[in-house]
Design a protein around this nucleic acid. Structure first.
Lengths: 173, 173
DNA sequence: TATTGTTATACTCTATAACTATA
DNA sequence: TATAGTTATAGAGTATAACAATA
């Protein structure tokens, strides 16, 4: 308990060494904001980007199927599709075999905007990694892939799309 | 339109190579959720953790000074301090020289809970990096530190504390 | 009876701005 | 007049649950 200069009985908790968790969380938040800013001129937000991206993959599936893939409440799905449809980026069409269901497809304008959004996203990636050479970036991706973030369901899907916080571990029942 | 297996005219945009930006954003979101879950038994949320952490550093400062350090609206500051005070983790005391101002200090219970919160946070870090050896983790931290995430104001502060999205580039006028 | 999509409603969270008491 | 803190209010976003059409 003897001390020379620092009277603090417990070690200063705020001066903790940087943690991967904290740094990643902070970076992720910043990057998300950057993407939102970049997409604003296109009139969409990151969540719309995520949905457009998924629609480009799964052509002609029902809303329900897409929502399941993205771990999205039917609720939010409707709102998102509404917004994209009002911007003529997406169109609802009758499902061929199930008259309850709708399929959702990109319009040509939607495909074009998606390409532009990808260009913007690549711009963010480039700026973010500007101080890394090719090997360093590859090494970083490798190390990040080794992190255990749980949530291995829905690979390639950003969990933020689903809404706030997943308190009840999976919405589907 | 003839097709053998893949009719896709443009390269599948959704099958883009993994980007550091996307991976970091997804990881950060997951980690944030983990911290929220871990802190729940303590009765606090990540934002309270962030404030308690700051209070442990800056002892006896005014609310305004702390809010400025954390890039926090006076508004949110009041609500946060209210919540912590109702849990007896923090106490408002009159500022010695300015009778308008309040200083905010941790109670012994607050310091104890903060220590416990740090233990939980370390647990998350440990689990997250379980598949990395010491050198790999150090290398990862090094590479992450080289990313250009902008926002170099308010070092060591999680931008999520400030609220939603920083649309107007800095709230202070 | 279950499921797809939708709508209605309540709840939480955040932001804007007005207010008080000091300076 | 400006500032620290507070309160009030409005707005955005999310989740819960009820609903109509179809299976």
């Amino acid at each position: 308990m003897t001390q020379a200069t620092v009277p603090n009985p417990n070690p200063d908790p705020a001066a903790a060494p940087p943690s991967v968790a904290f740094v990643v969380s902070r970076l992720g938040f910043a990057v998300g904001g950057q993407l939102a800013d970049a997409l604003k001129p296109l009139g969409i937000e990151p969540r719309h980007f995520g949905l457009l991206r998924a629609l480009a993959m799964t052509k002609g599936q029902s809303q329900k199927a897409i929502a399941t893939t993205l771990n999205l409440h039917p609720n939010r799905m409707v709102a998102l599709v509404d917004e994209l449809e009002s911007k003529k980026l997406v169109r609802r069409r009758p499902h061929p075999s199930d008259r309850r269901a709708h399929t959702v497809v990109l319009t040509p304008a939607g495909e074009q905007l998606l390409q532009e959004a990808f260009r913007l996203a690549i711009g963010i990636e480039t700026a973010l990694c500007a101080d890394l050479d090719r090997d360093e970036r590859q090494q970083l991706l490798h190390l990040l892939s080794k992190l255990r973030a749980g949530d291995t369901d829905h690979p390639g899907v950003h969990p933020g799309l689903a809404g706030r916080r997943d308190t009840s571990r999976g919405m589907n029942q």
